[in-house]
Nucleic acid binder design. Sequence first.
DNA 1: TCCAATTCCGAGTAAGTTCCTAGGAATTGA
DNA 2: TCAATTCCTAGGAACTTACTCGGAATTGGA
Lengths: 149, 149
Amino acid sequence: MRISTRGEYGVRAMLDIAIHYGQGPIPLKIIAERQEISEHYLEQLISTLRKAGLVTSVRGAQGGYLLAKRPDEVRIGDIIRTLEGPIAPMDCVDDNDGCCSHTEKCATRVLWQRLRDSMEEVLDNTTLACLCQEAMKLQAKDDSFMYHI
Amino acid sequence: MRISTRGEYGVRAMLDIAIHYGQGPIPLKIIAERQEISEHYLEQLISTLRKAGLVTSVRGAQGGYLLAKRPDEVRIGDIIRTLEGPIAPMDCVDDNDGCCSHTEKCATRVLWQRLRDSMEEVLDNTTLACLCQEAMKLQAKDDSFMYHI
DNA sequence: TCCAATTCCGAGTAAGTTCCTAGGAATTGA
DNA sequence: TCAATTCCTAGGAACTTACTCGGAATTGGA
């Protein structure tokens, strides 16, 4: 029941871009350095996020990545779904999938549905703007935080 | 973000035993057949559940497995934790683990904590007794269900 | 007392997933 | 033109998953 580094790095990278919203395109190299993530690996992740329409890119020198929407319009759930697939603890409660074949199994289905719903509720009610605010709170408490941004 | 077959089969097997609570030890073979799970594989899972104190075993002929507690005392969260490890979407919000090293990362930490809490809430507030009741409701609706139990 | 039914235990394994690395083509601002 | 950047494809080591295999130990009943 873990989110893989894909989801983790993806959220961290998106938050990094969100924190610098309005400051022009941010090169991948900078994000990778600040977040201590392999540049090549992050490149693959952000490429997926671009194809999903969550970020836009500017090629060439002075290029980089920008949020495709305002930070308050990007839900964490969107990022996770893009990088990790549907939010569902079990295939049988994945929207794309149908019901299960085994009747007995369905006694547990309500449980998996409730679990899925509670996960989606948290992830879809948190936006990058929420996390930016959280980052600002941390920044206020700890001045050394500045050096990371 | 999927529960593996370990957790799935574990819950199914435990529910199977719970449905037959008070009817003496149930052999693994029967459970595996009813739930359509590889007997050898299920053996490994139930061995883990036994070591965790969730089921007790009776060896020899006419032996099998029994719930170690009443169905209303066995939380689904206990089963999942035993077979899948701590319920935590990320290492940094695992109880055993401490905080993360990266300050910036912590801006996302509240999110992972909230996600973990919402998952635990669902899984710890559902017991085998709840699922038994669910199974009975399904049975009432569909007579063919009888053949599966 | 013996047998069949059962749990218990450890080893092995094929396929899939994760988390990268490597190398180079295409694009563009200065 | 050049350096900085995105874009793309391929590969691969390590780990995990979902099993299989074979046999030892235990025990109720004939």
